[in-house]
Design a protein around this nucleic acid. Structure first.
Lengths: 136, 136
DNA sequence: CGGTCATATTCGTCAAAGCGTATACATTTC
DNA sequence: GAAATGTATACGCTTTGACGAATATGACCG
């Protein structure tokens, strides 16, 4: 039985071949992140963020979850074993870049949830039940 | 001392985001390969092969060596540690795809050198001194 | 139910990149 | 040096994708 799902390497790498998307993936890392944080931290127009998230979703790299008005995105590991390892290695490499570290630092201090995300590193934190405050 | 060279992740992934280039990289694997073999095995117009090789060269993933009329290309591991591991993992994953295995099989049987490449797996085979025959 | 907020999509534009064809360049051979 | 061979580049065309601006959708709130 062929357990290995059909996986499009070409599309996978194309999805990784954009700096905005790499920044988004770095911000997600192990945790679910609300779109409003992406907009704030990347300091980019909201449609741009949304489009790149849609691109990642179509490539099967992230998944979305709605919670009231807010959308939360998280990384979903590809079924393809090799792609999964590549993605893990990519995330690890991103974390070593200074600009990516700066993004992450801004996430922990962002908006009204300075430590909420930083302290809980669960992959799918149901803990994040209040995604935003009055300013976000 | 910052040993880590400036590396463009975005450009790196863009270079991997094309199936023709993935096929070329798979064919190179550990060994140097002559352009004429690429053209024969991918069954593609020679300018197309040449353009993709130039793209990979600009991205710093392959290097070229001239030998008479013939050009030999080989993979050069990126200075960036993470990128190197990603590239290794990518090559390993490619080898598991049937179409890529078929390409490699055609390389070993290609032209007039059925076993020359298959038997010697040295990374930079100086052994390949006669790259082509009358048909290639 | 109308308004507001968060997010997604559409539209038009522009740059990047893939392709086939033709041509240029480099090397060998005669 | 002229022809032949292997490879690279230029050109025009088409597709893809990134972008900003505008608009649509979906959920909450009064």
């Amino acid at each position: 039985m062929a357990r290995k799902a059909e996986f499009n390497m070409e599309q996978f790498f194309q999805a990784l071949g954009d700096n905005t998307r790499l920044r988004l993936l770095n911000l997600m890392g192990e945790q679910e992140v609300c779109v409003c944080y992406f907009v704030e931290i990347l300091d980019a127009p909201q449609p741009k963020i949304s489009r790149h998230l849609a691109y990642l979703r179509k490539a099967g790299i992230v998944s979305a979850r709605r919670e009231g008005k807010w959308m939360h995105y998280r990384i979903v590991m590809p079924p393809h074993v090799g792609a999964m390892q590549i993605l893990r290695q990519t995330l690890a490499s991103l974390k070593e870049e200074k600009s990516m570290q700066a993004d992450l630092a801004r996430l922990t201090k962002a908006c009204c949830a300075p430590a909420k995300y930083a302290l809980e590193g669960a992959p799918i934190p149901a803990s994040v039940t209040e995604p935003c405050c009055e300013t976000c």
